[in-house]
Design a protein around this nucleic acid. Structure first.
Lengths: 109, 109
DNA sequence: ATTATTAATCGCAATATTACGATTAATAAT
DNA sequence: ATTATTAATCGTAATATTGCGATTAATAAT
């Protein structure tokens, strides 16, 4: 016990859960918002922007990258991060369809 | 350490993170989908629907309820769950604005 | 060559999550 | 009254996450 029983769910459910889990942390939400706001890619600016240690930021970036939501390219001594457009748009579509499926059905309770 | 440093984020970032974390589990995604699909409120059907123990389902329902995403009303010996419309629509709006802020900016990397 | 800067990784401690069996509390049926 | 049904809760074990200091690897600047 302790680990999620991924075998019993559909692939879509698992994928959506993984991506939502990646976003579901205030630090990572802040990172994504700043990435979008700045458009141009930033990197270690997050360390000063948020009040977290460099190791912690690096870990959060890694999780976002693992979920495929951002990408980073080495640029000399620093790393330039930005949104991964395809995964981002796919997630948007999947969430849209989830929310759309709850149109305006009248609740029973 | 081990706990999220909520103090350093905005209230919106924290709220969004809490609600996304509530959804970010395949079992809870399955529960929400089934709740929406059935429209009418189900309850312990989830135990047979998914392959999880009753205690586990009850815990997942509690988390969704704590996040304000669903509501449950006692109906005799069983409990009838359904989507909480206001929280659901608010979350939809917040996610929409997050995704909308990434319009079609051209990435730099 | 040496020194600074940047970011990844390792190792650790604290805390949170996932899952379940067992028990409990409450209503419904007999 | 007794028995079934339903769902919450407790306790526990396994695993995952969060956060950081310290170290490491790599390029840039001197």
């Amino acid at each position: 016990m302790g680990a999620t029983k991924s075998e019993i769910y559909t692939e879509e459910q698992n994928r959506l859960a993984v991506q939502l889990k990646a976003i579901a942390h205030p630090a990572r939400i802040a990172i994504l918002q700043e990435l979008i706001r700045a458009n141009a890619c930033i990197c270690g600016d997050f360390v000063t922007e948020l009040g977290l240690a460099q190791a912690t930021i690096s870990q959060h970036l890694k999780e976002l990258k693992n979920a495929g939501l951002i990408q980073g390219t080495i640029e000399g001594v620093s790393v330039c991060y930005c949104i991964e457009p395809n995964a981002w748009k796919l997630l948007q579509r999947e969430l849209n369809s989830l929310f759309a499926s709850y149109a305006d059905k009248n609740n029973c309770c």
